[in-house]
Design a protein around this nucleic acid. Sequence first.
DNA 1: ATAGGGTTAG
Length: 799
Amino acid sequence: MASLPLPTQSNPLLGPPKSMKTKNSAQIHEANLSKSLGNINGGISSTSFLHQISSLAKQGLNHEAFRILNQMEADEIPVGPEIYGELLQGCVYERALREGQQIHARILKNGSFFSENEYLVTKLLVFYAKCDCSTEAGDLFGRLRPPNVFSWAAMIGLNCRNGFHENALLGFCEMVEIGVFPDNFVVPNALKSCSALQLVGIGRGIHGYAMKIGFSECVYVLSSLVDFYGKCGVLEDALKVFAQIPERNVVSWNSMLVSFLQNGLDEETLELFSEMRVDGVQLTRVSITSFLSASANVEAVLEGRQAHAVAVASGLELDNILGTSLLNFYCKVGLVEDAESVFDCIINRDVVTWNLLISSYVQDEQIEKAFHSCRLMRRENFKFDCVTLCSILAACVNDGKIELGRVGHGFCIRNNLDSDLSVMSAVIDLYSSCGKMELAQRVFDVAASRDLVVWNTLIFAYAQYGLSGEALKHFYQMQLHGLHPNVVSWNSVILGLLQNRQVKDALDMFSQMQFTGVNPTLITWTTLMFGLALNGCGYEAIRLFGEMLSMNIRPSAIVIAGVLLACAHMVSIWYGRVIHGYIMRKGFLSSVSVAASLIDMYAKCGSIDLAKKIFDMVSNKEMPVYNAMLSGYALHRQAREALELYQYMQHFRTKPDEITFTALLSACSHAGLADEVLKVFAEMISMYHITPQKEHYDCMVSLLVNCGSFQEACRIISALPFKPDDHVIRSLLTLCKEHYMIELDEKDMPRHKFMVEPENSVNYVSFSKIHAAHGRWHGASRIAALMKMNWVRKDCGSS
DNA sequence: ATAGGGTTAG
């Protein structure tokens, strides 16, 4: 492209590109204005009026210009076409449609000498084109023969702005064909249409042509080429053109920034931005919004904050776009308080700013604040849109507010938002989250159109419950509808199979997926690690982990947590140590979830001492780390150590959560420390405002069982605020065994529940013990067989 | 005698 020969002389129709016109005309304007205001009533020639009108129009003083026209008509001074032309120009500057139409009417009233005047027709065309009035502009364009560059440019620009990119490009080609040379104003528009239609070849042609006709140094053409190549994903060429711009302005830099950003090169965006600052370029909103967007993508908190500071220092006020991108940045990196304060500073809040604030609350699980903001948004007369409803529905799912979710769904139906595909996905997610799969399926069935995301949502909905048959059915149906599964679809199907213990099928799917050219993501690996670990296929999980490393994929902290869980479930301290070594070499111990999983692994593999050693090594002791250690102590029946750690935790102001108390209570109740159990239980409620869950009550009940307080245990069970689940039933049954109150049979057991949750294998043990205690060896052996069938972990037998 | 342009958030 760059090797095309440049013409020896520039195009005679065109002259040199007007790229650097920066005539400072403020002083001239001022002189003209004072002259015109002073001369209105003087008897002066029409050329003088023309100048007055022209200068008023340029300053946006349309009203004054109109007054002069009226004065002229009143004084019967002849008004020529140029006068109307200047007035129209004023309307172009101001995009004043009404006023321009009035001038148009006057022109028509003055007869064909005016209305057929080529200059006026061109002006009118430019005016209507700028005001995005396609029909009027098209009519006027048809009357011009031949149209000049300005008319062509106006039409092409109009089509480009309104998304009629084919028409814009056809116009450009026709114009070139009939011999009108494009100028440096049309070329950027033509390129914009090329990038909108992703026509890389055509754009390259225009690039070559533009170089040939003398725009090789024009900063406007070159900047729009950078943008064009960036939007078409040809980053090398964008960079090449960028390097060739002799005098870059801020738009050239910004175009390059946006090119990096839109091609996912966030680090490069950040780097280029600092080069801009070194170069002393005066940054604009576009520079800062692009930088903020890249910072948000890579969660570069420091950089984003600096951009905020630069924006403030540059005196850029928080308008909609800059404010929104700041808001977006703070939301994405999870700094909700900063997002709130930015939100308060934004001058013109709109639906988008509200939506961002609300979704950041939802993401931060501050559901009440999210709902409150929705109410405030309504109070300020903003209507909920699709994005708002997606947030609201997600909040309902998060908070288990299914009834409210149904109301939200109703709102969508009444306001025609339910055909929006992301809303549809959110609704499917809502119903599936509470197990109402029939409703989720119905929403899906009545949809007029569905995209990949909607299909994937339904497939995931079935998969999470281990309904692999339904998941697979929709996976294949989707393909019959002509949609290719993406990695999300495959991930869901694999999850569904693993949840349903179809380990072999899941692994088959995994290889099929790779065979069809879909690369696994970290989510795929995570699903596999956890799925295999929980299905007792720890060895397979470890093998896959090795495969992943040999493919040079850097595992995430969650993947490592998964493989550690596999070691824990295999009770394989040997593999655990190997993974431990890997973690130390790659510096993963700084990750909270890795540290917690490592502690958990050592505790479950029998070495509470090694678990403690890791715990002491971890520098950033966050709650999951404490919880893992506490659960380890509970497992090893070390109640005193657990209580000590609880004190330590409080000393360092780490707020305990539900899991903390589950571990603590179970450690104490196993040790029969009745006073401590009651004290901790009370603290949980009064100091930390945690509503006790089933497992907490369960600890109470088993403590009471241990102490033989049958009456008290029964009282607690009957007072439970929810239907007791199998944990509680287990304690109850243990009690019954103790007191020989009732006869037992397998048919009393909620068997379907056991089939789903392998962790509950401990239940089988309880039941078989009960049978054994009653001398019913037949029943006990039946249960043992069931255990085997359901892949129950071996280590459960001893607990 | 004469006109206008490229980059922007969820």
